[in-house]
Design a protein around this nucleic acid. Structure first.
Lengths: 228, 228
DNA sequence: CCAAAAGTGTTTGCTCTACACCCATGG
DNA sequence: CCATGGGTGTAGAGCAAACACTTTTGG
């Protein structure tokens, strides 16, 4: 029998993006409150079905836009979860993604989208989650940690221009440990992925140089990821 | 609208395992020749549909067994490919896996399974592949290289007992570069993932100590992988 | 001139790499 | 005793981590 035929019962296919941002000095995850059974009232990832004519990444971006109003973000496929029984209603396979959106992005929730209640939660204090979403978020966090350690992806969570102190603070917030200022700056600059701008940020104390990521930085981070 | 309902058109869902082994001193990949259109006559990964009541990993193992007769192998999820248009007949999303099977495993093909022609090909000289399977195999190879570099997973391709020279030769074959004998042995032994047995392999020259992987080595390699 | 945050190099330890000879066995 | 592959240690280089003071601005 050919391995490809059409008369099979098909699992339903969804995408579940884990959307991260920085808010109120912490790493936060966007969750929606479920209205229907199963798990009515519980929080869950803002997932949804994959349409016939969109790629998996397009589906994840569509969910992102429906929930936040943003049309783009750094997006990476995480893992595909397909245990029978992960959804009590039947066979649902989900492709998990993780997304990073900048701290200053004009994000809609809290401005209330439709009926579907959406809220940011600190990644360190999540409510109980529906389905296997706790497992998915936990894995997304592991991968984010790992990514910061080897690939300078942290700037994806910052505005277009940022100071090195802000970037370092981002890393410290996510990794949960203090970093040496001089070593941090040396490593980041040697990675050659950000560059100084002409601008300064003034505030208390000495004004700080603003940096931006290089035009090809995103491509480079994507290339350095271990996934196609 | 709830993100989970049932009346959506569903993409078909398949798994495509990239099955690696060592044969004739090279890394080889198992391919099947397609009988039907599209791509009739071309070689492809030995994939198939996911059944309603099996997990994705079980589906991959089932395909492995159908094609090789083996009931187990080191198996890891790779990536999920879902571009519309990757299968000319319609929407088919596939979850790619890679599998490592030992050089001495009693593998069936070449002993001819059913009509479906299956054959081993050296990973370095693959024929043109159907669908996006060339992309999948290329990614599987990248991931295998990477895995060997950081996780001592090479023993999954060897018999239960093996000499350090055989293990080193495996690494050199896959990575395509010569390794220093003393450094290789030190690193492997310090990783603490294999242990000496009481046995020796006699042959030409001084007999070699046989090693086996520690009982918890597989769990450790799986833990060290970056995927759940 | 004081407070606040930005910015800047050097030393030290450690890890990785390069490298050559003796050992045990079979024929 | 010779050929064959197995097995072992050390010195030097490069990289990563620890560490403290000066600079610039605003009030």
């Amino acid at each position: 029998m050919s391995p490809y035929t059409y008369d099979y019962p098909r699992p339903a296919l969804t995408v579940d993006p884990v959307i991260f941002t920085l808010r109120e000095d912490s790493l936060q995850v966007l969750l929606v409150q479920r209205g229907d059974e199963p798990f009515a009232g519980m929080w869950a990832l803002p997932g949804g079905f994959v349409n016939q004519h969109e790629s998996l990444e397009e589906a994840a971006l569509r969910e992102l836009e429906e929930e936040t109003g943003l049309k783009e973000a750094y997006l990476e496929q995480l893992y595909t979860y397909g245990d029978p029984g992960r959804d009590p209603r039947g066979r649902v396979v989900t492709v998990a993604y993780f997304a990073l959106i900048p701290a200053d992005a004009p994000v809609r929730p809290e401005g209330g989208s439709d009926a579907s209640q959406a809220r940011w939660f600190p990644a360190a204090q999540l409510p109980p989650l529906a389905f296997d979403h706790a497992q998915i978020v936990s894995y997304a966090l592991r991968r984010l940690h790992y990514k910061l350690e080897y690939s300078a992806a942290g700037f994806q969570l910052l505005p277009a221009e940022f100071t090195l102190s802000e970037l370092q603070y981002t890393y410290e917030t996510i990794l949960g440990e203090a970093l040496d200022k001089r070593n941090f700056r040396r490593r980041i600059l040697e990675a050659n992925i950000i560059e100084p701008t002409e601008h300064l940020r003034v505030g208390e104390g000495r004004p700080a140089r603003l940096y931006q990521y290089r035009a090809d930085a995103v491509a480079e981070v994507k290339a350095r990821r271990l996934f196609p």
